[in-house]
Write a protein that binds this DNA or RNA. Structure first.
Lengths: 248, 248
DNA sequence: CTATTAATCTCGAGA
DNA sequence: TCTCGAGGTTAATAG
């Protein structure tokens, strides 16, 4: 039931409690044929790159993807305990009585090494997935909601541009109020802290310098709500807030 | 080789191309005995909660952890295409000719549903892992490096407190320079953008108001480097920068 | 629970 | 490549 048996075209190729040589063969074949490869067993993990870490012996689940990413999972946590991003090159090798998986990339230089003392299962999967995720409730939904009904920000608001560039970055919605004053609108899909206020403040500042006219420029933060500190900071910087969610 | 065969104590329990009933049995038994459960096959995924999403038919790898988290992976990307955080309750059921995995939690109300049209493999694993990850190269390492050798910030720098509270949040290192002036140091383990400068600026502002004396207060950002926009913002706000990494 | 910040954040867009 | 900002960010920590 391994690649050596000529079944490399099967959607699934699995060995339970394999010999080391058989495991290496299946993993290498999986890498070569762009399959999703998983291993489970007792292993140590070392990482060195942007930071460095060590993880002693324990049972973990390792997933190597054909795009070059690798994920090491324990039995808890949503996040992998160790990982490597897409674009790495994987290698499997037998080192005496251990199976070693190495994943490497450059810029930045990063290396992950998993050394299995015992392999309980090896699998490779042929993945056929053309479908893309469709997500809503995003910041884009909030923007569309406002562009369809600008009065939600305030009566008389007229959007003139989205992603308008300034020296400090792009303003989500740029426009005019009912009195013709310039309006910079910063959108956040959920409750925000002081960071978002700082962002809006930098945009309004940049606008004032870019336009170097003395016309009043208003900055409005649109989000479901703000924290107390964010409210303070809005107040102190003469910025405004409108409560709005991305949906309905 | 399933739980029904009395092998539920084996470290690995795997079925390839199982019948739906057998798959449901293995998965349910895995949930009940706190094992790590994985499935691979053709499925649809729906999520509704903080946002909502749909994912059409395709091959995916699903991992259910005994802590209540669930991860749905495609063949690309380091991140799962769908997931649920720890603390959810999982259920497996047969719905006509499909296998359904449901994961739910409250506060916030969130639900993930995976519906398998075809199951190519089911596995459950007994995970024994007492080891914890040891990581370095973090912001804490940078702080320790400076506390051991304050002159790295500048000759004569004297740290007086860490995490000193202000109205705007905690200052990483609070101290005095050689001339007795108050110094607020903000630490970042890697290259930073304008957000970190905004943070430091808020702290220095808050300090000036908290101490309401006219003594000069200096703000110093310590990180490996800064972006151009961050450098501009430092300059405009009268803040300083010292280049330092967490390591060596 | 809320609030705040770090992260080997990841990811995608844009220059 | 770097930079910048979004994210169902997640995770840890404090209150």
């Amino acid at each position: 039931m391994t690649a050596a048996d000529g079944r490399q075209d099967a959607r699934v190729d699995t060995l339970v409690d394999p010999s080391l040589d058989a495991a290496v063969t299946v993993v290498e074949n999986g890498f070569e044929t762009d399959r999703l490869v998983t291993l489970f067993g007792r292993c140590k993990v070392d990482y060195d790159g942007r930071a460095s870490s060590t993880l002693g012996l324990g049972d973990r689940h390792v997933m190597c993807k054909p795009d070059g990413s690798i994920l090491v999972h324990t039995d808890e946590g949503q996040q992998p305990v160790n990982w490597q991003p897409p674009g790495c090159t994987h290698e499997a090798s037998r080192e005496e009585d251990r199976l070693r998986i190495e994943s490497e990339r450059s810029s930045p230089e990063e290396r992950l090494t998993v050394e299995f003392e015992q392999v309980s299962q090896v699998s490779t999967f042929a993945v056929d997935d053309a479908t893309e995720l469709s997500l809503d409730g995003t910041e884009e939904d909030l923007r569309n909601r406002i562009l369809e009904e600008p009065d939600l920000v305030e009566p008389g608001f007229t959007p003139l541009a989205t992603e308008r560039d300034t020296a400090a970055g792009a303003i989500d919605i740029f426009g005019e109020d009912a009195d013709g004053r310039t309006l910079a609108v910063e959108l956040k899909r959920k409750r925000v802290g002081p960071d978002a206020v700082g962002q809006l403040d930098r945009y309004v500042d940049a606008l004032r310098r870019d336009l170097h006219d003395d016309a009043e420029i208003r900055g409005i933060l649109v989000s479901p709500s703000v924290t107390d500190r964010a409210a303070d900071l809005l107040e102190r910087n003469g910025l405004e807030f409108v409560s709005l969610t991305p949906r309905k």
